[in-house]
Design a protein around this nucleic acid. Structure first.
Lengths: 159, 159
DNA sequence: TATTGTTATACTCTATAACTATA
DNA sequence: TATAGTTATAGAGTATAACAATA
């Protein structure tokens, strides 16, 4: 049995699993808070991030986000109502639409991305420069390996 | 201008901000998927994780989760309906309830935590043992510093 | 027949505002 | 008055199933 938590000044290590879990909550709550200040949800921001360099069909968008097509309809509806994205009839398949980001949408996503970057950089400030580099490489490694494993395109996030 | 993406075998670095963002999506989606297999949401699992070593009032639970008290009512209602938690009248303040995890709830959260750990360890396998140690320490450092900065108790997650 | 997208429906999660019952 | 919790209500986000239009 491990000795009583011993709240030592040299923090105990949370362990990799808990550490990553908590780190993910931290990052997500930063994202959610910042998005919220612009009256946007995390999903909306993810969607806008995807649309920064793509014009997918509803279907493709659903695959990017890992959501059912029926969820996409509402997501795009709400974003379109707010002038963040547009639907354009596909010229090759009359069943399909191309979803595109508008200038307004682009402004939102850029602003949020900038604020998010600032926030993350602040969180990461206690690490040395060398450690930040290592962390960046490790995160990249994990994420790209996973993406490769499931044969999925990356960059579902800001960018 | 950077040369065309060059999908080199030696992956380009996503950068710290994007790397952490994507890592957090990866971790969260693993958690969400595993919880979902047990017909639970991420919030429910977080709540059960908190209740593993605490018996907070509704109010305290709300502060742990960063949610409004009106959200907690429903959250606890649904969990209680499924036999995962109980409300017990406080003996000192007749307005209050103590929320406690049940044995069934404990089983769920342990099972989910185990599956989650397994999944994360698989994701992290491409790193060397030394790197995994470093990553663990860095995540801990970031998370505890942040918690300290906002004067908040840690361990809102499995444990 | 299969696929694209929408609709109908149902549930969870979340917040705000108004309320009750304590304190 | 202030606090603990609930209720009423509203809206986002999600999924399943059934449907229309097109492939």
């Amino acid at each position: 049995m491990p000795p009583p938590p011993a709240p030592s000044p040299a923090d105990e290590d949370l362990g990799l699993v808990d550490g990553l879990a908590q780190l993910s909550f931290l990052v997500q709550s930063a994202l959610s808070e910042i998005a919220g200040q612009h009256d946007l949800s995390v999903v909306q921001i993810r969607m806008l991030g995807i649309l920064r360099d793509r014009e997918p069909t509803m279907n493709q968008l659903g695959r990017h986000l890992g959501l059912d097509k029926s969820s996409i309809t509402g997501l795009v509806d709400r974003a379109q109502r707010r002038g963040l994205v547009t639907r354009t009839a596909s010229s090759v398949d009359r069943r399909s639409f191309q979803v595109s980001i508008t200038d307004a949408g682009r402004q939102f996503v850029q602003q949020v991305a900038a604020e998010f970057a600032e926030r993350i950089e602040r969180c990461v400030a206690p690490l040395t420069e060398a450690d930040r580099k290592r962390l960046s490489r490790m995160a990249t490694r994990i994420v790209t390996t996973d993406a490769r494993d499931r044969g999925i395109d990356l960059r579902t996030t800001p960018r």
